[in-house]
Design a protein around this nucleic acid. Structure first.
Length: 501
RNA sequence: GAAGGUGUAGCUCAGCUGGUAGAGCAGCGGCCUUUUAAGCCGUGGGUCGUGGGUUCGAUUCCCGCCACCUUCACCA
């Protein structure tokens, strides 16, 4: 097979291909079929006492090489960590040592040997056997490390954000804290699942491709099904399908899934992102508020070891209870204005006075939303629930039992950013229909994000949905907080990028 | 979509007010059988993001374009 790729080989790549040819001449298979490992690097380090002088077989990628002619030290990294290996020509034999001479940083190797400490005290595998498992044909970014007073100091870190995101495999190979963030991400999702499964909720899967999109205010990605010759949308939320399942008789269902919103990209928005939605029958938003507080606190303790964490230099404390502030109280606190019960024009005037960017066509709900975003949210650093939103902003939420102008809804904010949204779900099909109709009016008036009327969803509600509490939790944002990541791209393995070239 | 910033060797970066580029690491050759940012000696490597313009001459100045970052807009 010819590899006739267009890219010109630079010198470093030519050298590696030449070494590959040499290995093949030597009858060495440079892309091995398997290798039997009996320990990870981490295990060898952690269990040194019992493994000292014993033989172990480990495999990994060569991260550093220090050759001294007839002997050499190298560090190899597997998924558990890195460990030093020591090779001597008179131990591994001439043939294997010749193969070793043809290996580079970035190659994947297997080593069998005995565990010792070197003169300087580093736990090291003294190789008895050395095998090349995979020849790497491209230069790996070399990151040097030094341990200084217990701290690992890194030199020449692979830091180019564009390369890191486009070639995440390199980022993961070379930057251990990146790898760790994604391990933590996985643990968080596992913890969410365990928490919900432990309470008897059923994990389900609902359509990603939907003939109507709903459950949130956002623009969708549009696609086309050829055989049915129809337009389909990638979901912007799971809500309407999950509620149909509550109608169907499940007591509690949740879904952890990708949602897709055709909107801007910034450090807290990616066009595809992960959401956890949960619906619980016979409960209301107070139940859900308690659940969020408890679940997020439990996850923080499990993943970070403490409910108090550090995020971008700020101390955040997830210990329950989190402050609960009614939206109009928060507005009062941060604007000094009592905006409750004010007319649309009064709100508009207030927004102008507060220098919020409002447009003449905005309805009162939008205006309030704007003021909250600019004047309230940035202050909500410690975990805080903002409760009881105006009804116009929340077409799927149930009216507040004490005030028909509000809905029973809360959002949790941490570090000034929303992490979840929940409400007592609207189960009155007549009210739901009129809310949809209002949305359709707003849509006709030019609001592209107003929600679509979903007749089948209404039909389901007409069959009767029990009282239900619902929640949407932004997994990416939770992971950002618990991994101290400034950008959502640091917690999504392959963030959306423009194509290369 | 707007403004600002960045783009130089495989990686991390220098390059002053224009004279066709440097370092460290990585690579290659040599010495070296307990090194660890290994060391010592020697050495190769660049369409300076891309396309134009100004100029005798552009990595450097000007304009367009591309990508990334930040902020804003959009966005639960």
């Amino acid at each position: 097979m010819q590899d006739n790729h267009q890219e010109e080989l630079n010198d470093l790549m030519k050298v590696r291909r030449a070494k590959l040819a040499r290995l093949q001449e030597m009858q060495v298979q440079p892309f091995a079929y398997s290798f039997v490992r009996d320990h990870s690097a981490r295990e060898v380090l952690d269990r040194f006492e019992e493994l000292e002088e014993k033989s172990v077989a480990v495999a990994g990628r060569i991260m550093a090489l220090r050759s001294m002619g007839k002997a050499a030290f190298a560090h190899i990294a597997d998924s558990s960590g890195r460990i030093q290996i020591y090779l001597r020509r008179d131990q591994v034999g001439d043939q294997a040592y010749e193969v070793f001479d043809l290996t580079d940083i970035g190659d994947i190797v297997g080593v069998t040997g005995t565990v010792h400490k070197t003169r300087t005290g580093e736990i090291t595998i003294f190789a008895q056997k050395f095998e090349l498992l995979t020849k790497s044909l491209r230069p790996m970014p070399v990151v040097k490390e030094r341990v200084e007073e217990g701290q690992t100091v890194t030199y020449d870190a692979f830091a180019d954000t564009e390369l890191r995101y486009r070639q995440r495999y390199l980022d993961l190979m070379v930057n251990r804290e990146v790898r760790q963030a994604f391990v933590t991400r996985s643990r968080i999702i596992t913890a969410v699942r365990r928490y919900l499964d432990g309470r008897g909720y059923l994990e389900v899967e609902t359509p990603v491709l939907q003939p109507l999109y709903g459950g949130a205010a956002a623009r969708p990605f549009v696609t086309h099904h050829n055989a049915l010759d129809m337009t389909l949308y990638l979901r912007i939320a799971d809500e309407l399908y999950l509620k149909r399942l509550i109608v169907g008789g499940f007591d509690g269902v949740y879904e952890i899934s990708k949602d897709f919103r055709n909107e801007g990209i910034d450090r807290s928005h990616n066009p595809e992102f992960t959401m956890m939605e949960l619906y619980v029958a016979y409960e209301d938003y107070t139940f859900m508020l308690n659940l969020v507080e408890e679940m997020v606190g439990a996850i923080a303790r499990e993943v970070c070891g403490d409910a108090k964490i550090s995020y971008q230099g700020q101390e955040l404390d997830f210990t329950a209870p989190w402050p609960r502030v009614r939206m109009f109280e928060a507005l009062q606190r941060y604007t000094g204005m009592d905006l409750y019960g004010k007319s649309r024009d009064e709100l508009y005037a207030a927004a102008r006075e507060l220098h919020c960017e409002v447009e003449p066509f905005m309805e009162s709900g939008k205006i309030l939303d704007e003021i909250v975003k600019e004047k309230v949210e940035p202050h909500l650093i410690q975990p805080t629930f903002l409760c009881d939103y105006p009804v116009e902003l929340s077409p799927l939420a149930k009216r507040h039992r004490d005030d028909p102008r509000l809905v029973e809804r809360f959002e949790a904010f941490v570090a000034g950013r929303e992490i979840c949204n929940a409400f007592s779900e609207l189960n009155d099909p007549i009210d739901q229909r009129s809310r949809f109709e209002q949305q359709m009016k707003a849509r006709a008036a030019g609001d592209e994000e107003a929600q679509l009327l979903d007749e089948d969803f209404l039909r389901a509600l007409e069959h009767g949905m029990p009282p239900t509490a619902g929640l949407g939790l932004g997994i990416d944002r939770l992971v950002m907080l618990l991994t101290d990541s400034a950008s959502i791209r640091d917690v999504i393995l392959f963030p959306t990028m423009r194509p290369e070239l």
